[in-house]
Write a protein that binds this DNA or RNA. Structure first.
Lengths: 152, 152
DNA sequence: TTAGTTGTCTATCACATTAGTAGAGATTAG
DNA sequence: CTAATCTCTACTAATGTGATAGACAACTAA
């Protein structure tokens, strides 16, 4: 699962992408529009500023704006940033590899083999999608069994 | 991330699959071979018995065995069982859908749109892999940028 | 029948992580 | 100057996680 904080981070960045090149957006505007607790959002945005994804303007008429073009911010990068890794096990991370506790040697671990493959599939998808993508909120559900789920 | 408990669960099931139709395997044998704390493993196996994936035999010469053929136990199902869902957000679960706290209406949430698509890709992969699959522990890493990573 | 082996169940614990808050401080436009 | 706005460190409460304890139930072999 993505943490609540990661979810807030992504929605805040999406909001800034929506207002790219329209001047700076105040924290309160983001908090209200995206339904994020104000104080918590200060923590999140300060981190994004430190990472360089967001530029802040202090003082009166201050606010935030994206530090990069939306097309240059990939969802994969956002998740790596807030969560350290895309992988579902520590041992399957390409960027922040760690041994799993109480595991077998990695060269024998079949779970790791599976998780590496899965990680790569996830990365492919999350790295080809950026803040510039439209993302239809109601994508069709293609049931692998053949039918189409009308419930969404 | 998968929890430690989910990782233990998968490795325990893999172990039972390796000994399918070879009689029952004692808890201690699994704990030793798979490096799982004995007491914790009792909790895990009892749950698997309750769910019907594993059959237990009590008393002398007791132990555990798989309740289904390895080919009928999909990794997707194991993860759904221990974790409730494959999805990375509560709102993107097909089986255990819940609204995310402090979110937008789901019909407007672009993060949800992305997470639904990702969930479906993950499900496709995890549901076509079963305990009967061999899973090479050293799969080649095809770098999307073009090269092949020799480090694995 | 009974001793010994093995699984079952409920409760509990310590610890880490997470979500969120407090509040003083720094910066800037007007 | 002053009001608006972001920044930083620390703190707290709640929750979840990994793991253990220990009494109990069931089964087999002798």
């Amino acid at each position: 699962m993505l943490s609540q904080k990661t979810r807030y981070t992504i929605r805040a960045l999406q909001h800034l992408a929506d207002h790219y090149r329209q001047g700076s957006v105040r924290l309160d505007a983001i908090a209200t529009a995206q339904n994020i607790p104000r104080k918590f959002l200060t923590v999140i945005l300060s981190e994004l500023v430190r990472e360089g994804l967001v530029i802040s303007h202090r003082g009166r008429d201050g606010g935030y704006e994206l530090g990069l073009q939306p097309v240059d911010i990939r969802y994969g990068d956002i998740i790596r940033l807030t969560r350290g890794s895309l992988a579902l096990t520590p041992c399957a991370s390409r960027n922040a590899h760690e041994h799993c506790a109480n595991c077998l040697p990695e060269s024998e671990c079949r779970l790791r083999a599976l998780m590496l493959t899965l990680r790569d599939e996830m990365a492919t998808m999350l790295d080809r999608t950026t803040l510039a993508d439209r993302l239809d909120p109601e994508p069709a559900f293609i049931d692998p069994a053949g039918g189409i789920d009308p419930a969404g």
